[in-house]
Amino acid sequence: MRTLLLLMICLALSGSAALAQDARKIMDAVYKQDTSRDATWRGTMDVYDKKGTLRRKKFTFRKLGGLGNSKTLVRFNDPAEVRGVGLLSLNERGVADRQWMYTPAIQRTRRIAAQERRQRFLGTDFTNEDMAERVLDDYTYKLLGEGEMVDGRKTYKIEARPVSPEKSQYAYVYLWVPVDVPYTVMAEMYDKNGQRQRVLKAGELVKISNIWVAKRVEMNTPTEGTKTILLLEDIRFNTGLKEDGFTQQALEKPDA
């Protein structure tokens, strides 16, 4: 079960407040807190390379459906080089994800093949694995501690280990979930050598339509000195998006 879209990680890692002591229960709450039927927002994605050069892209994001059974459509609108480029991805439980990209310059939609896990997704700090939609059962969890302050919030520190280690580039992931908000506000991903590969920070938590969401997500790659910052605006849930907005025909209409 994978999905393409950047924001998914935020959503996947978000969750509602739960005071459970059990790590799995804490995470279950995180996974379950997003109860939306659909979501829409505008995003700004800033990618900094190791020299600190910034590449900014703006896009709109639409999602229909919930965890494990969703459709998303991302449409870039800035800068000019990528205006109109669309990404459509269909996640269905039990079926391999299907993804398409539409490029207006050659007016073509093409299938995106399954990519390697460790590969950066479109040059961002998110790897393809990071972009994949996950479910609770993909990991086993262990509560490592309680009380560490992140962004002014007291958090649980949880260790998550992939159930199928051979399918992951990470050996283990540390997650920080505030004791009062069911949302992953920080994550550190470690490889098999115990090297910290990625650091994710989700900040500016807001509650919209009773759903927690981070308006700023930052992914760091400490080993390479690059980072990607995602800023969300105009977040709306349950606006009544229709199925036909998530088809190849829809993908090929950049102005719609």
Binding site: R55, F76, V82, V85, M101, A114, L122
Partner: peptide, 27 residues
């Protein structure tokens, strides 16, 4: 956007530098 496995021979992954893959594909 296809599987990289077949064309690894063409590019040494470590030496590949595509600053902005999205632009590279879009243009």
């Amino acid at each position: 956007l296809g599987d990289r496995e077949l064309r690894e021979y063409q590019f040494d992954e470590a030496g590949e530098e595509i600053a902005d893959p999205l632009v590279a594909l879009a243009q």
